[in-house]
Amino acid sequence: MMANIERIFKDKEGFRGFRAPGRVNLIGEHTDYHYGFVLPVSINKFFYFYLRQNRENKFRVFSENFNDYYEFDYSNLIFNREKTWINYLMGVISEIKKLRGEIPYFDAYLYGEVPMGAGLSSSAAYEVSVAYGINEYFDLKIDKKEIAKLSQRAENNFVGAPCGIMDQFIATFGREKTALLIDTLTLDYEHIPFDIKSRGLRLVVVDTKVKHSIAGEGYSTRRREGEEALRILQKYLNINSLRDLDEEGYELSQKILPSPLKERVAHVYNENRRVLNFVNDLKNDNWENLPKYMLDSHLSLKNLYEVTCEELDFLVEKALEYGAFASRMTGGGFGGSTINLVPESIIDNWIEKITVSYENKFGFKPDVLVLETSDGVREI
């Protein structure tokens, strides 16, 4: 079998390649599935997808990361519990089939450099690179907004992860030296200038290297709590989502909702406003206000939404103590990473201090990634 795999993939002759970036969310955490506002940036860590049509009446796929091969046809386009890495590609094919019918069979080669489990959205980079690549290769004429949406549906419907639209959207529409303001209700978006190097800053992600066992369950629980709060509020207010709350509705929510529902609503309501204030200050060059928004976001995620953990809280505290301009957790929480804006003049010393202090505290080193912003999905 391995000889056959090497023959298919060794030279990539006839293959077309595509890549989509991972992302870091600057601010706007746990707002996207409440149809709120988010502000991610796409990063220079990518998922690569190469494909070439074949005449074998089956999809033949090799993953370099897993050093694994899998083949299937339309009769067994079903969730695979053993080779979970294939499900994202199968999910995208399933969603494209619903839109355009069956596409021709192809060989595919997969490689991802977005760290898995770090909260940098390796799965969305995977889905978007595959969806965009298939669309371009077979000229299916699916527009880019639908590429993002079908990629999200692949993760929701096939993989079974209840993610919002943010990750797939930034992988599709990201642009170098900008952040992407996304209204997850209307899917309107705006590129906001975010040239941190001109400010003498670097974008640094510190990966805790932990993912607590509650992560999946905790994420689903937070979604259910938000939906439960919404149902109660809809008895009093004409709203379709927590995003629709105005100041009066928010004040009512804090009076009538029990804990922890009122705390969850408080986070979502105020986080949406932090995103819009953050964007406004970016546009007006008021960078001095950004650290407070990011810290307030982290503290809200810690105290109101309860999705941080000891490792994340420690990293944010030490990041600021050692001279970071701004810091907060990013991603779903319960592990994962922090995002930090660090003065370039202290970057090496800062990384050394944060690494040593974390290892002294927890017994192992974090991963530290100094990142650049990047463009969204494209052919390579």
Rank of each mutant, 00 (worst) to 15 (best):
N270D: 02
Y269E: 00
L252V: 07
N240Y: 10
Q254G: 09
D281G: 00
V275G: 01
P291L: 00
N272T: 03
V265D: 00
I239D: 14
L245H: 02
N277W: 04
R264M: 02
N240C: 09
L237Y: 06
D281A: 00
F278Q: 03
W287H: 14
Y250F: 15
Q234F: 01
S241L: 12
V279M: 04
Q234M: 08
E251S: 14
P258C: 08
D244S: 12
N284L: 15
E288I: 11
L252P: 05
D281H: 06
E247Y: 15
L290S: 06
A229H: 07
Q254V: 15
N240K: 15
L276N: 06
N280H: 13
P291K: 00
Y236D: 11
W287M: 12
R274D: 01
V275I: 05
N238S: 14
R264P: 03
I239W: 13
N272W: 05
R274A: 06
L230W: 02
D244R: 09
E247F: 15
K262L: 12
K292S: 06
I256Q: 02
E288D: 13
F278H: 04
N284S: 15
S259G: 05
G249L: 13
E288T: 08
L276W: 05
E248P: 04
V265N: 00
D244G: 12
R231G: 01
R264L: 06
P258M: 14
R231I: 01
S253K: 03
L290R: 04
K255E: 12
I239G: 12
E271P: 06
E247R: 14
L282W: 06
A229C: 09
Y236E: 14
P291A: 00
D285A: 05
R274K: 07
P258W: 12
P258D: 13
E251F: 09
A266Q: 02
Y236A: 11
L290M: 02
S241C: 13
D246F: 13
Y250G: 04
Q234K: 10
F278W: 09
L233E: 10
N289K: 09
S241V: 13
D281W: 01
N272F: 09
I256S: 09
R243Y: 07
K255P: 06
L282A: 04
L257K: 12
E263H: 07
L261S: 07
N284P: 11
K235R: 11
L257H: 12
N286L: 11
E263A: 08
I239N: 13
L257I: 15
N280Q: 14
L282V: 07
L252E: 02
W287N: 10
L252G: 06
L252M: 08
V275W: 06
I232Q: 01
R274E: 02
E251C: 10
V279W: 09
L257V: 14
H267K: 00
D281V: 00
N272L: 05
G249K: 07
L261K: 07
E263K: 10
R243H: 11
P258E: 14
V275L: 08
E271K: 08
Y269F: 13
G249T: 15
L230I: 01
L261R: 05
L245D: 01
L233H: 05
L233T: 06
A229W: 03
